[in-house]
Amino acid sequence: MSVDVSPNALARCATHPDELASATCQRCGAFVCGACTTWLLGSLYCPACATRPEVNYLETLRLQFWGKRDATAWFVMFCALLSLIGAQAAFREGNVPACVSMVAVTAVGVCFFLGMRWARYALLLVPTLFILPGLSEMGPLLVVFAIVPTLFMLQIFLDPRSRLFFRVKVPERALRRLWDIRVNNPLARHAVSLGVLAFFFPLFAPAAVVCGAIALRRVDPHARPPIGRRASSVVGIVLGMGATAMWVMVIARAIESGGLGWLTSP
């Protein structure tokens, strides 16, 4: 026996009542039609929920850093000022090639700080500008020393935070990695740092354990935005407890050997 369902009994889109619903929002549960369906970060939302900062958290992060100067830009500007001082010294010594080279480096650094896109590419040539005046004296050996700064400049060029400063499009994967580093459960990251420091300074050990425990309780992959770093939280706790055990053994051995006899003396 078949049962006919009245069209009036079928679910309707909350935004377009004349349209039948094809799905429900995973945040508020509202019915949505095909035109209102919004896929975001692998989940389906209604148009209203899709615009919420906590739902579209990667877009919120992008807008937060879009066109905003970062620490790298300040570092480049500082290096540009040092290069300007070097250019003045080279000018006084009559070293024209070195002076011209350092003035060019200064110009690139200042323009990078001001957010000019061409300077982002020109920054890759800065190591070359530095080594050109010395090639005649040191030869190919100088090129070897330029490899490390060249790789460093390449890292700045590819850094998502720096790309956002220059208003360059950043892929979702890179944005997710940036969000994970900057925003996602920062207590877990602090727990790991404190755990490492605890092996040198014992007072950091309890802080590492506490931060790791709090961060572990906050982990919720189903939240929006999701809260992760479970592994980092556990690592922070383990490091804190390991450092505590190490310092207990160190102090115990020192007491046994008489190195801390003043602690047990009446």
Results as ranks from 00 to 15, higher is better:
residue 165 F to I: 11
residue 177 R to L: 06
residue 131 I to S: 01
residue 30 A to D: 09
residue 51 T to E: 04
residue 224 R to S: 07
residue 201 F to Q: 13
residue 234 V to T: 04
residue 117 R to F: 08
residue 206 P to M: 01
residue 243 A to E: 01
residue 167 R to E: 13
residue 261 G to A: 15
residue 241 M to G: 10
residue 88 Q to N: 15
residue 255 I to L: 15
residue 142 L to C: 10
residue 244 T to D: 07
residue 102 M to H: 02
residue 106 T to S: 02
residue 42 G to P: 08
residue 201 F to E: 12
residue 33 C to N: 05
residue 44 L to V: 15
residue 157 F to G: 04
residue 70 D to S: 13
residue 227 I to Y: 02
residue 240 G to C: 08
residue 96 V to P: 02
residue 232 S to C: 12
residue 211 C to V: 09
residue 186 P to D: 08
residue 152 F to Y: 13
residue 37 T to Q: 08
residue 10 L to W: 14
residue 194 L to E: 08
residue 139 G to N: 13
residue 164 L to W: 12
residue 218 R to H: 06
residue 171 P to T: 15
residue 84 L to Q: 09
residue 38 T to P: 03
residue 22 S to T: 12
residue 253 R to Y: 12
residue 112 F to R: 00
residue 103 V to K: 02
residue 78 F to A: 12
residue 137 E to A: 08
residue 152 F to W: 11
residue 86 G to M: 03
residue 204 F to H: 03
residue 105 V to E: 00
residue 126 V to H: 04
residue 89 A to E: 14
residue 21 A to S: 14
residue 113 F to H: 07
residue 245 A to M: 07
residue 266 P to H: 09
residue 25 C to V: 15
residue 191 A to C: 15
residue 53 P to M: 02
residue 168 V to N: 11
residue 32 V to G: 00
residue 102 M to A: 01
residue 72 T to G: 08
residue 243 A to C: 13
residue 11 A to R: 09
residue 167 R to H: 14
residue 19 E to K: 11
residue 116 M to A: 09
residue 232 S to P: 00
residue 42 G to M: 09
residue 127 P to W: 01
residue 189 R to C: 10
residue 191 A to I: 11
residue 129 L to W: 11
residue 191 A to P: 10
